[in-house]
């Protein structure tokens, strides 16, 4: 089975979610739960690291869309980093680079919160 995993760590008061595997309509609820947990603990500065993500469908992008308004209203943001070319293309096709900060390196995404 294609699997999907989310793990959490912190860097300079920013929460990093590392996502791994295949993110589709079946696995998207795992990412949704992980982000909801952060919001429940009043954590609104979030970076998602896509380094180990092999696949994404619009269900994964839909999760980000579902939270972004609430997170920004609380002064936070979801920033995205380390996407491979295939994953980035999906975001690009749907116009997401205009809405989200997408950086090559994780440290650049974290830095954007600390400016």
């Amino acid at each position: 089975m294609d699997s999907f995993e989310v793990s959490r760590r912190q860097k300079n008061e920013v929460e990093i979610l590392e996502i791994k595997g295949y993110l589709d309509a079946h696995t998207a609820p795992s990412l949704e739960n992980a982000i909801q947990e952060l919001i429940d603990s009043d954590t609104y500065q979030i970076v998602i690291n896509f380094r180990d993500l092999a696949y994404i469908s619009s269900a994964g992008l839909g999760v980000l869309m579902g939270f972004i308004e609430n997170i920004r209203e609380h002064g936070g943001d979801i920033k995205l980093c380390e996407m491979n070319e295939k994953i980035y293309r999906v975001f690009d096709l749907l116009g997401f680079p205009k809405i989200y900060d997408i950086t090559e390196k994780e440290e650049d995404a974290v830095q954007k919160f600390n400016r």
Binding site: L61, G62, L94
Partner: peptide, 8 residues
Amino acid sequence: VGGLGIHL
């Protein structure tokens, strides 16, 4: 949220 699939 949603409705992105057909455009993709």
